[in-house]
Design a protein around this nucleic acid. Structure first.
Lengths: 124, 124
DNA sequence: CAGAATCCATGAGGATACTG
DNA sequence: CAGTATCCTCATGGATTCTG
């Protein structure tokens, strides 16, 4: 009774429709869709930014969570970190090519949610 | 120094680049990108399914989390619930038109992650 | 079969203070 | 400026039991 996956790659990757818990994509998905992961990625999708810029744009994030999120995304290869050895220090963050690819799939989602949020909250 | 948002709706919705914490989209985004929200939505994107089907497909989810996630997504208007008054009971879940729109933006993301997960894990 | 109810553990995440 | 370090809280979420 396949209706919508039919023409997607998902049907090929998960032939029986089961989204396996052991799959490495679970980990990546958790990073990407984490509370702050989405916002940091979307923010950086607007171009290279300094620490304080990201902090300001992902409104509400704590320093701890910003550091942690950036580190995770950097380890995953989505974010590039470039530190100037100056005083005071200056550090720029940007998306890697891999991160850009990811953001390209993330932006439409965030955009759609932003456009329909009121409608959705109204449902409750 | 806008580079990537430039041609998106995001630039219009958030002109100064700040993703506001008070925005209702934050709530919806949290539901959608919650640990299990993504998997349940993606699973249902394959067509109407019974409780036990969703449970099996979103591998690893507990009954509690399945119930909670389905209820939240239903309140948001993404998921439709249809219960047969039979014994034993039979309940079918499906995406609403709104849910289908959302899923259309979610599937490419999940698909991309599924395809590149190994590559990403390799970065670490 | 499809949940509800209860208890409980963990860790995500916040607040604050400090530093090269 | 760009973080670390520490402490602490609360909510997410797991395991288990019960039921119409």
């Amino acid at each position: 009774m396949r209706t919508t996956w039919g023409d997607t790659e998902l049907a090929r990757i998960y032939p029986n429709g089961v989204l396996p818990s052991a799959c490495p994509s679970r980990v990546v998905l958790d990073h990407v869709t984490s509370k702050w992961g989405v916002l940091v990625l979307v923010s950086l999708a607007d171009g290279p930014q300094r620490w304080s810029d990201v902090r300001r744009r992902a409104e509400g994030i704590s320093e701890k969570m910003l550091a942690q999120t950036l580190r995770t995304l950097q380890q995953d290869g989505f974010v590039h970190r470039e530190a100037q050895p100056t005083v005071p220090p200056r550090v720029d963050y940007s998306l890697t090519p891999l991160g850009e690819e990811l953001a390209a799939r993330l932006l439409p989602l965030v955009e759609w949610v932003a456009e329909h949020a009121d409608e959705v909250v109204g449902n409750r």
